[in-house]
């Protein structure tokens, strides 16, 4: 349904060019939850914004993002405006700052309806009540006159979701929707997303760094590192048999009672995500990778199918390794 090919985003700033997203391709199928996972700065949010060009004007976007035959990457501002909110809708990370503090919820939700539908204000208001009801906000009608600061973070995020689904979008992009929220609230928001997917058939692109969230709701997973996709597959398969050392590392960094017993501390991936000014012909993870060889710094590994799902690595983990050795970063646990 949504087909992204070779999406590349670079920013020209005062310190030169930064390549944030490098030839990223993926498909989003109707009604599925596709999760994009990675550390901060790996380009996942930029990818999401680039879909409908919500990026600042100094961002350079190439490649294509085709939704129902329309290439959004090449579309006119007018077309994009009709797509935003109607076909592709967004829920952002910060529910505190993503709602306008000076307008009532009623106004902000009805505005989302009126942006794409030719209906009267009272009809739009009625729709707003239904939407708030849909995302589980109690006393929806009375909440129309309430301002964002009078709500809790979880409630605000529900409002954001209500606004996003106002026009029954084909794709809902949720950019770290639960990161700023308490764990209990988080579960409620995920329930809402899951429920909407089932009820409205909306495809959800869930951007997160929280693997717990991924395991909970995703159907398929795309793992990104330094602007590139390093591994991609069905969620159970990928969690059970991670091939890429980076994915392996991410899984090892999840707080886990078993791992703590073994090494006494959380396993981390040493180093930081590099900021790239170009698209090197090498594996961008090589510097931090325990399995890196000369080949990794000389040639970029292609995204290839390795027994079950796709991975971009010259030295992927085998099934045997996954079955026996457990965690890859154990090399650092004795240090």
């Amino acid at each position: 349904m949504l087909s992204v090919r070779d999406l590349t985003v670079s920013f020209t700033g005062e310190e030169g060019v930064v390549c944030a997203v490098d030839r990223v391709s993926f498909d989003v199928r109707a009604g599925e939850v596709l999760s994009v996972v990675g550390e901060s700065g790996c380009g996942k949010s930029v990818t999401a914004m680039a879909l409908t060009r919500l990026l600042p004007p100094y961002a350079r976007v190439t490649g294509s993002a085709v939704l129902d035959g329309v290439d959004l990457a090449a579309a006119s501002p007018r077309t994009l405006r009709h797509v935003r909110g109607k076909d592709v809708a967004y829920v952002f990370q910060e529910p505190m700052s993503s709602l306008n503090p000076v307008f009532t919820l009623g106004r902000q939700v009805t505005e989302a309806v009126l942006a794409h539908e030719q209906v009267s204000r009272s009809t739009a208001e009625q729709r707003a009540v239904e939407l708030l009801d849909l995302v589980g906000i109690p006393g929806a009608r009375d909440r129309l006159r309430v301002y964002p600061h009078q709500l809790s973070g979880g409630m605000r995020q529900r409002v954001m979701i209500a606004m996003a689904v106002a026009c029954n979008p084909r794709v809902l992009v949720a950019d770290e929707p639960t990161t700023a929220l308490d764990v209990t609230v988080q579960a409620g928001i995920l329930d809402v997303l899951r429920d909407l997917r089932t009820r409205l058939g909306t495809a959800v692109v869930l951007i997160t760094h929280d693997l717990g969230v991924v395991a909970d709701v995703a159907d398929r997973v795309v793992v990104m590192y330094a602007g590139r996709i390093v591994e991609r597959g069905e969620v159970r398969e990928l969690f059970r048999r991670p091939r890429h050392p980076y994915t392996k590392g991410l899984l090892g960094a999840v707080p886990n009672a078993e791992a703590r017993e073994r090494s006494g501390r959380l396993l981390e991936i040493p180093g930081l995500v590099p900021v790239l000014s170009e698209q090197p012909d090498a594996c961008t993870f090589a510097d931090r990778c325990p399995r890196a060889s000369a080949r990794c710094t000389e040639h970029e590994p292609p995204l290839e199918n390795v027994a079950g799902h796709e991975v971009a690595c010259w030295h992927p983990h085998t099934d045997d390794e996954n079955a026996t050795a457990g965690r890859p970063a154990e090399r650092s646990s004795d240090a």
Binding site: T52, L54, P77, R81, H82, V83, R84, G85, K86, A89, Y90, F92, E94, S97, S98, L99, N100, P101, V102, F103, E111, A112, A115, H116, M160, M163, A164
Partner: peptide, 24 residues
């Protein structure tokens, strides 16, 4: 962020600037 939200809703640039940003 709320200006980004307004754009993501598909509002006209005139509304984004003249209503959401201006009022603040």
């Amino acid at each position: 962020d709320y200006v980004r939200t307004a754009r993501a809703k598909g509002l006209r640039e005139r509304q984004v600037v003249g209503v959401h940003a201006l009022r603040n």
